[in-house]
Every structure is written in structure tokens, then in C-alpha cells.
Write a protein that binds this DNA or RNA. Structure first.
Ligand SMILES: [Zn+2]
Ligand SMILES: [Zn+2]
Ligand SMILES: [Zn+2]
Ligand SMILES: [Zn+2]
Lengths: 160, 160
DNA sequence: ACCTGAAGTGTTATGATATAACAAAAAGGA
DNA sequence: TCCTTTTTGTTATATCATAACACTTCAGGT
């Protein structure tokens, strides 16, 4: 279980790999990876940070791909349902999936200083929450697991 | 680690205990448990369900305690900062704390059928999320842990 | 090629959640 | 009392999200 986002890595590779996986997934599942959807994913992938729907829309607008809110929300709906992006509930913002392809329950480490986000994989149905759920007979469909705090980079900087 | 909310219990006792604890906490910490704040907590305590800020406002309005949004949000701000209530990020809604007094990181089991919510206590800094955080040097300040699913009561009902 | 239905897009309008800003009132201590 | 801080009342606005409907595109069946 490793977390990206706070460490230097070959991000160009990170982006191209994810886009190729998304293409392959769509081909395999009969989904249409249209220009709007593809560009939306590219925009989310640009950084390991969460973007608001209207921020995404602004970027899409720069490329002439739409100006009204539904454009962004439809793209996000597609991306999240396909598992290509996740919503960060604590920020009302969206981020590209860092483990595209794996069927996973994501957990996030969110830096409140620099807004960067790392995605970790968890099996939420294991662990304490899962225990509790089983104990009371609760059936879990989806989990929201987010930790807000300060990333290693920001801890190193005396004044942030 | 037990979860209330899905099981029958003496809820009147549940309410009075929590209100008394809140009063004691305010007295001990020099906080003002004003009529608006007290009534807001009572409203949240009425059921083990999450309430939207505007739903809360509507209830407060019935008692002549305010009609404009800031009234509700200020009360919620006080209650959440004091630890008397929690925000359910996945619902943009608020719920009274079920373990008032204990210094805790809450986790929630949220029934998407009947909207009832059970609060479990966790030590989120233990478990996998905490492991990951420590491994990458991330300092956790607050956690959002929510499981969306179906409670035992709703599973028993064939058509919901 | 044509029809047809499903999916995607463009657009307007609106709903739902949350906060900024500032004046008035109340509370509390010197 | 007087002054400061906190709380409240109120207006306006910011931010996040969806409903609804017309139009286009595209794949499949004929
Ligand atoms: Zn993911
Ligand atoms: Zn950071
Ligand atoms: Zn109760
Ligand atoms: Zn239920």
C-alpha cells in the first residue's frame, strides 16, 4: 500500500499510462472515451491535486469543449462511474484515480496546506469499520475514507 | 466499539444524557450554550439521522429562533467545534454526536435507504490509513470515515 | 441507404449548500 | 459605567449540483 502524490515521480509516464489504461478499459467495456471525457481526465491528471467541477469546466472551456456546468458534471459522472476519477467529499472536488484498473476502495491523504492528494488503496471492509459493520449487520456498498492533514513537503517548510 | 442508531434503545435517555453532557462541557470550558445552540442540538438529537443545514434552519424557524442561513450555520459551527455534532461529508448533512464527551475520531455507518446513521468510534491513526500516513510522513489532523450501505432494518424489508 | 433507438451534447434555468459583510444587541470584565 | 468581545439579525452573494428539453451523433437492424 503505497501513496503517490507527495513524492517526485515520472509524472509524464504517470499520465500516459493512466490514459492508455482508460482507453483500454473503455474499449473492453464498450464505453465511449469522447474528446470531452478524455480531455477532462487529462486535466485531472495534470497534477495530483483535487479540482472543483467549475475549475475543470474552466479548463475545458479554454479548449472550446463547453461552457455550461452540465458539461463538467457529465464528464465527472462518466469518469467516476468508470472508476477513472474519485470525488473527494471533504473538498467537494475531484481527482484522477491513481490506481486505474484495480478494483479498489480508495482512501485519501489530503494536505490542507498545498491541497495535494495521495490515493492509497484499502480494503475498508476489513479493519475496524468492517468489523463494526458486520457486528451490527450493516451491508457496506461504498466507503469514504479521507485524512486531512499536512504532507511531508509542507511539514518541512517552516512558514506555509 | 458499538454502533447505535440501528437498534431500539431508550432514546429519551439518550437525548437528556447528551444535553446534560453538553451543558457540563460548556460550563467547564467557558462556552455559551445559548438558546439557539441548545435548540439546534435538540433538533439534531431528535433522531439518529443526519439533517441538512436548511432542514435544521426550518426547525429553528418554527421556534422563532431565526430564518436566515447564517443562523443555522453558526449553530452548526459551534456544535461541530465543540464536538457536539459532526458533519457527514458524503451527505452534506449534520448529526449529533453519539459519544459526547469522549475525545474521538468518529466513523459513520450511513443507511442510504432510511438515512439513519450510526456513529462508531475509531482510532483512525491506527489501522491501515494510519500506517500509510506514517510510512509517507503525512501528519493527520482529522479523518472522514463514512460507510454508505444498508442497515439491518432495511435489509429485512423486502421492498424499500 | 434508410430507419430507429440509445447515447451524447448544447443550453437555459433552477435548486441546494455555504459564506461574506456589516450593523445591532447582549454579555462580561476593568 | 465604559469598553471589549461575542452573539445575533439581516442582506446579499458565492459555490456546488441537477432538471429539463431540444438537437446531434452513432451503431444496429432492415
Ligand atoms: Zn482510485
Ligand atoms: Zn502539502
Ligand atoms: Zn438514541
Ligand atoms: Zn435503513
Amino acid at each position: 500500500m503505497t501513496a503517490f502524490g507527495f513524492h517526485a515521480h515520472d509524472h509524464a509516464h504517470c499520465i500516459s499510462t493512466t490514459l492508455h489504461r482508460a482507453e483500454a478499459y473503455c474499449a473492453a467495456h464498450g464505453l465511449k472515451f469522447t474528446p470531452i471525457r478524455r480531455r477532462a481526465l487529462e486535466i485531472l491528471l495534470a497534477e495530483h491535486r483535487a479540482l472543483g467541477a467549475y475549475d475543470l469546466l474552466a479548463e475545458l472551456a479554454k479548449d472550446g469543449l463547453g461552457t455550461a456546468p452540465p458539461v463538467a458534471y457529465r464528464a465527472l459522472d462518466f469518469l467516476t462511474k468508470a472508476g477513472f476519477a474519485h470525488k473527494i467529499e471533504g473538498l467537494n472536488a475531484y481527482i484522477a484515480c491513481a490506481h486505474l484498473g484495480a478494483d479498489h476502495s480508495p482512501a485519501f491523504l489530503i494536505c490542507t496546506e498545498c491541497k495535494s492528494v495521495a490515493e492509497a488503496e484499502t480494503q475498508a471492509t476489513q479493519g475496524r469499520l468492517g468489523e463494526t459493520a458486520r457486528a451490527v449487520g450493516f451491508r457496506i456498498n461504498r466507503t469514504v475514507i479521507e485524512a486531512l492533514g499536512v504532507c511531508p513537503n509542507c511539514q518541512d517548510q517552516p512558514c506555509a
